[in-house]
């Protein structure tokens, strides 16, 4: 379990993390989301003791990371795939890690097999592709069979097979009762593998809720979409029933404040022919963009005439 409380981290006059509080619980995959520069990596580095907080606390299983008696067994960490000496082989890299906790060569070979790196074990890490580097990083995180995992962008650079593998892996790890904190920029990936999401922007907490709750917050969630031959007629009927209606092109109406059943019944009442009827669901991506829209640190200028 990871508990972050009122965490603040400043570098000179820049505030990277600003009073952040959240908890990543056992048996759960907690997705950690935020625009570039929002403070995700900084938070993760404070959690694993590489940086000290300006104020506030970050604890793992109730202890400061530096006070953990056997850190590799408590927390598996992958912060950056480029945390390996390029001149060292994957095997020796993991062996040196394992030796700090008295783990044997057998365990190193086990995680190499588990991450599909057996054939590359004796190649120097500098020759690895980004995806192989990610696998090596994950192998290092799994080495101590830890109860908590902190993974920064684990699917970055992985091929579709690898993405699927990481998704299954984190689900299994959580199912075994472990705590998984995982950051990613890939929304649909996170929607598929996370139970909860913590969204931050400019170092502050924007949302901490289950994936479903966040999705339901997106504007489109709960809207009924109907296509009809007589849009004006149906719109009048729906407005009279107290719903909000936004007409779209091609005889399509977006209706809020009425259920799918209600819209169907209204259509029958006024005699409009329903050609299509369904409810729209929001997406994590939409909810995320709405939440972080105001706090994006490095916004693109936007393409001329571009949509969105």
């Amino acid at each position: 379990m990871i508990e972050v409380e009122a965490l603040t981290k400043r570098y000179g006059s820049t505030t990277a993390v600003d009073g952040l509080t959240f908890t990543a619980r056992p048996g759960t995959v907690t997705g950690f989301l935020g625009p570039n520069g929002a403070g995700k990596s900084t938070t993760m580095r404070v959690v694993v003791g590489l940086e000290r907080p300006t104020s506030g606390t970050a604890t793992v299983d109730g202890r400061r990371y530096a006070d953990l008696p056997a850190p590799l067994h408590a927390v598996g960490v992958m912060l950056d795939a480029r945390s390996v000496h390029p001149g060292r082989t994957a095997y020796k890299h993991l062996l040196a890690m394992a030796q700090t906790h008295g783990l044997g060569r057998a365990r190193v070979r086990e995680v190499l097999a588990q991450t599909g790196l057996e054939s590359a074990a004796h190649r120097r890490a500098g020759t690895f592709s980004l995806g192989m580097g990610q696998r090596l990083g994950i192998a290092g995180a799994l080495l101590g069979d830890p109860a908590t995992l902190v993974l920064d962008e684990p699917v970055n650079g992985l091929d579709p097979d690898g993405v699927l593998w990481v998704r299954r892996l984190v689900r299994e790890l959580a199912a075994e009762g472990r705590t998984v904190l995982l950051s990613s920029h890939l929304m649909h990936e996170l929607a598929l593998c996370a139970d909860r999401v913590v969204i931050i922007g400019r170092g502050r907490l924007l949302a901490d809720a289950s994936v479903q709750e966040v999705v339901d917050r997106s504007e489109r969630a709960g809207t009924v979409r109907v296509r009809t031959s007589e849009p004006e007629l149906l719109a009048r009927e729906l407005l009279a029933a107290g719903a909000q209606v936004t007409p779209q092109d091609g005889g399509v109406l977006h209706v809020r404040g009425a259920s799918v059943d209600g819209v169907g019944t209204a259509a029958r009442r006024c005699g409009a022919t329903v050609l299509e009827l369904g409810s729209e669901s929001g997406s994590l991506e939409e909810a995320y963009l709405q939440l972080t829209g105001g706090v994006v640190e490095y916004r693109t200028a936007g393409t001329p005439g571009g949509a969105r």
């Binding site: 299983d61 008696p69 590799l72 906790h101 069979d145 009762g177």
Partner: peptide
């Protein structure tokens, strides 16, 4: 929650989990 279940699970014949 099944807090430290995973953490205490040890592979067969593994030595104590010391730091």
């Amino acid at each position: 929650v099944p807090a430290a279940r995973a953490g205490r699970r040890r592979p067969h014949g593994a030595p104590a989990r010391t730091g």
